[in-house]
Computed example of a mutant assay.
Amino acid sequence: MLAILAAAHPAPALAVTVLTALLAVAAGHSFGSGLLVVAAVATGQLGIGWSNDLIDADRDRRVGRTDKPVATGAASEAVVRSAIAVSLVACVVLSLACGWRSGSVHLALGVASGWAYNLGLKRTAWSAVPYAVAFGALPAVVSLALPTPSWPPAWMVATGAVLGVGAHLLNALPDLADDAATGVRGLPQRLGAGVVRVVAPLVLLAGSAVAVLGPPGPVPLSAAVAGGLCVALAAVAVGGRGRVPFLASIAIALVDVVSLVLRA
């Protein structure tokens, strides 16, 4: 069971789910409606994570990835396929239960982007597009699920999209050598590790700047403190190794959303 859970990429899935919960609080969801949209996003993330491990299993075996349960055989491919099917059905049902507007955006932009990345876009120069679309759509998934559906402000969509691109660049950073060995030529691989280490934190800080300056009115102290914390986390991303830069990018996104909740 733990191997099946690990094959779902639980850390990114949990991070996106927590971001959704914070956005739901900021948007003013009740507990029930907020729980529904969080559950819809969580099931979508599980399916995307499992499909990534399953689709990449042969490639992961060739480079000796011991952290991939499907590639090592710790998680049965048949069981993972069944888990994907169950998660997809649950995701569709839960998403549409949030309302056709929210459900359509989640399925067509959020979930479909994750699957498009796994199925081939990760190997192209357009590999950042699914991240931009999915993260940019997340605020709309939440706000369109309200009793009175509404589109989020443009600055919020832009913040999500920019943070998604930064997260993609840093998420790929530890695997660049393995990717090169198996012919994966996405945007991070084309830029190279040196460029990614500099560009990705700058992209994340640009997203944070939009989050701080985008809302109308004066910038409160809490937002200014959040901006400073994001700068510190960007420095961690520049100097970190392994998964540390990606975790720093997720922390930046969390800080930005917490700042938004405090301003709501």
Rank of each mutant, 00 (worst) to 15 (best):
G242R: 03
L233W: 00
L138A: 10
S222I: 12
I84V: 13
D67W: 01
G228V: 09
L176F: 08
L205H: 08
A40Q: 09
W155T: 11
V111C: 05
L169S: 11
Q45W: 04
G240F: 11
A78P: 02
A116R: 08
G73W: 00
L262Y: 05
R190Q: 15
W126D: 03
G242K: 01
T72N: 03
T20Q: 01
M156E: 13
I48P: 04
P220N: 14
A112H: 02
L121Y: 05
P139F: 00
V236L: 15
V93W: 05
V129K: 03
P188Q: 15
T20W: 00
R62Y: 02
L54V: 13
A224C: 08
A57D: 15
A234R: 00
P220H: 14
A137F: 00
D175N: 13
L146Y: 09
P152Q: 02
A251M: 12
R59M: 14
G136S: 07
A161E: 14
Q45P: 06
A137W: 02
Y117L: 04
R243A: 12
L144Y: 02
A132K: 11
R190Y: 08
A237S: 13
P215L: 13
Q189G: 11
I4F: 12
V37A: 01
H29V: 08
R241Y: 01
A24C: 05
V80C: 08
A6S: 13
P201K: 06
S150P: 00
L221V: 15
G120R: 09
A108R: 03
